[in-house]
């Protein structure tokens, strides 16, 4: 408390403000949302993600999404999040997919050895090719982080134009979750000689299926 008051009073002294003094009016936020059809959003989203070496699929049915995932993972171990959409697609029923984790340590062990992490996404942003994931009982943070390949299944109605639309829909993300995460393409670095390398700590490969 003491330290807090010390620091705040140093700030107030520097600014010539007094305790409890309200701030001057704050400039309004700047949010611009363009008109864009769902088709255009999907196209835009895919184009941007592909530019970042992401793989994309527009699936006409849940079944098609399942087939894509089945073919992709083959015999390798995968972890799926608890998102209902993945169950509806039948992805959680695939033989090498483990899902339904409720306990952190089990999930951690599974993710650490899985070759694929499969999630849904709360939103996608067309403008930047971004996935938006809120941490929740259905969506743990690790699934899209530890395995070397990330696969996401996104309902087509969830594709927003961009950041501005997202923050208009969700003005206070913290009310919803302790973690809102944006994923824009695969993990990458250019720290040695500016040479681009994918897959440093996060997944080096990302697949997004829009259903």
């Amino acid at each position: 408390m003491q330290k807090k008051d010390d620091l705040l009073s140093r700030i107030r002294a520097a600014l010539g403000r007094s305790v409890g003094q309200p701030p001057a009016p704050l400039p309004p936020p700047r949010l611009r949302i363009p008109e864009m059809s769902v088709e255009a959003r999907i196209e835009r989203f895919f184009k941007n993600l592909e530019n970042l070496a992401g793989k994309t699929l527009l699936a006409s049915s849940l079944e098609e999404a399942r087939c894509y995932v089945a073919q992709l993972i083959g015999e390798q171990p995968a972890v799926a999040s608890n998102a209902p959409l993945l169950r509806e697609c039948g992805i959680t029923d695939l033989p090498t997919v483990r899902s339904g984790f409720a306990c952190e340590s089990d999930l951690r062990a599974a993710c650490a050895s899985a070759a694929f992490g499969i999630t849904s996404a709360d939103y996608a942003l067309a403008d930047t090719g971004t996935l938006v994931l809120f941490s929740s009982p259905e969506e743990a943070r690790m699934v899209s982080l530890l395995p070397p390949v990330h696969v996401a299944v996104v309902p087509r109605g969830r594709i927003l134009t961009g950041l501005d639309e997202l923050l208009t829909e969700v003005p206070l993300p913290a009310d919803r979750s302790s973690s809102m995460l944006f994923i824009t393409g695969p993990s990458r670095t250019a720290d040695i000689e500016q040479i681009l390398v994918r897959g440093v700590h996060g997944p080096g490969e990302i697949h997004v299926i829009v259903v």
Binding site: N48, P173, A174, S178, L181, F182, S187, G202
Partner: peptide, 11 residues
């Protein structure tokens, strides 16, 4: 246009 990962963490 956007960095690969952006985390918004509250608590």
């Amino acid at each position: 246009p956007l960095t690969v990962y952006t985390s918004f963490l509250s608590g």
